[in-house]
Design a protein around this nucleic acid. Structure first.
Lengths: 267, 267
DNA sequence: GCGACTTTGTGCCTGTGTTCACGAATGGCT
DNA sequence: AGCCATTCGTGAACACAGGCACAAAGTCGC
């Protein structure tokens, strides 16, 4: 069996594959176009901001300019226009983008206009948090199944869904038409769970467990590493220019803990 | 006040700043060298894998080759060697890298050899999960303070730490020498919390709330967007080539891995 | 209708990151 | 000692992403 090694970290640019965009409905974008991975990630951000605007009915003229949206999302306006140009020409020169149209187009491109059924495996602290996370159950994702291996947890209800035995995943996933699996187990179980999910026909996995997953080539794994970002912060903290931080300068030479006193805010 | 817009998503390459590496101890690497952001992210992964090997005492000769480590971490071996070369020449040609030395060097470079004090804001589901997350409290990070704005939560204990009022953050953060702040609040509160943290002297923020944070230039923000990765998966799901999609539809029968009997998904 | 102004869409350039391929160094074996 | 297999370190080529700047295309005022 051919085994693909999952990309490291949560870097969207790790694998630079392009995906031909063949969105139905966009007649301007008739020819298939490759959308860069980095652009896809930003489109999701644009979509969120736009949805927010629309919901709050904030934008008076119902159009928004690239500079305006760029500012709201923290990107360069040229980059934003280039990103949007991958969807086709939905902007009006001299005016901007129609918020409703743009929202719809991005939604369509991202596949957010239809619901994706998600199976969540591992109902520990993190798993339960994810089960109730608004950004998960909203945004076109429907958590359709919960799994765990702990008999203590199996049978309990979380967010109105019953926790099933992970060993029944194969049958349940096929029955419910789940296409995306989320792994929120400890690292030690992640690979086994991934194997089961793959066996159940799932082709997209979001992995919150640290470590690398081995899956077949046609299964896409994305990794959210909670501590990775923290370590990157720590790196920058340790390497601050001496001008910016005097404390970091001392840390460079010896592992001297800068603050010896006042440990924690204990009750 | 000069305001920088935080980079979008969790893309490490979003801002391409280099950091001069002036790690004490590495005499081979005497001249300051710029370590790319992407490399830093991978170094953290290497470190985790190496630590795992070391703890389990798995590696017999106490050395490991680049190909071997590359396979364990899911990267190209050349890339791995180039990454490690930023630390200096700690490999031995014809042999590999000494696991202990390598671990130590990466640790040092990442600033993981000394403890970083972290303040966690927002003790909802996600916040509580983070408070108990082993990859957080381990790996050189010490959660030193918990904050929330909800009177219901203030005063309660989570993971042996008392939840304090966010409005006392300024005093408490300075007292405890916290340098990193983690925001796990709803999006609506994130900006206010960020302002408070910045006011308390914190210069590194890990943000789990969706949306963009505005902070001064000298404050670094990293963003973990839980739903972003899911949306990227959905995009790929929606844009699968028809050939691959049909192959995957029948994918149940073929690559079924050995269903493991002993499976422990506990936490 | 026409000119001024605004905003999009994009060509081009630069810098970053990844991969290949190969020389250099090292340990083991005869 | 000398040769050989192995593995590191890195130069060069390539792919990708980001940003500037400008032409094209539209609106608005008169």
């Amino acid at each position: 069996m051919s085994v693909a090694t999952a990309p490291v970290g949560c870097d969207p640019t790790a694998e630079a594959k392009r995906v031909t965009s063949q969105v139905g409905g966009g007649r301007v974008n008739s020819r298939a176009r490759a959308i860069p991975e980095a652009t896809v990630a930003r489109l999701a951000v644009y979509l969120r901001v736009l949805s927010g605007l629309e919901e709050r009915g904030e934008h008076p003229g119902s159009t928004i300019s690239s500079t305006e949206l760029a500012q709201s999302t923290g990107v360069n306006s040229a980059k934003l226009r280039k990103d949007l140009s991958f969807l086709g020409s939905y902007g009006i020169r001299g005016v901007g983008y129609d918020v409703a149209t743009l929202t719809d187009q991005i939604s369509r491109t991202l596949g957010a206009h239809r619901a994706h059924r998600v199976a969540l495996v591992g109902l520990g602290n993190l798993g339960q948090a994810l089960a109730g996370y608004p950004g998960f159950s909203g945004r076109g994702f429907v958590i359709s199944a919960l799994f765990d291996a702990d008999p203590e947890r199996i049978g309990r209800d979380v967010s109105g869904l019953r926790i099933e035995d992970i060993h029944d995943a194969r049958a349940i996933c096929r029955l419910t038409g789940v296409t995306i699996g989320v792994i929120a187990t400890p690292a030690s179980a992640a690979q086994q769970v991934a194997d089961i999910l793959v066996g159940a026909g799932i082709r997209s996995i979001l992995n919150f467990a640290p470590g690398v997953l081995n899956v077949p080539d046609d299964v896409e794994v994305r990794h959210v590493d909670l501590s990775l970002q923290l370590q990157i912060l720590a790196f920058h903290e340790a390497h601050r220019t001496p001008a910016a931080a005097s404390a970091a300068a001392a840390g460079g030479q010896l592992p001297t803990p800068a603050q010896p006193a006042a440990l924690a805010v204990r009750s």
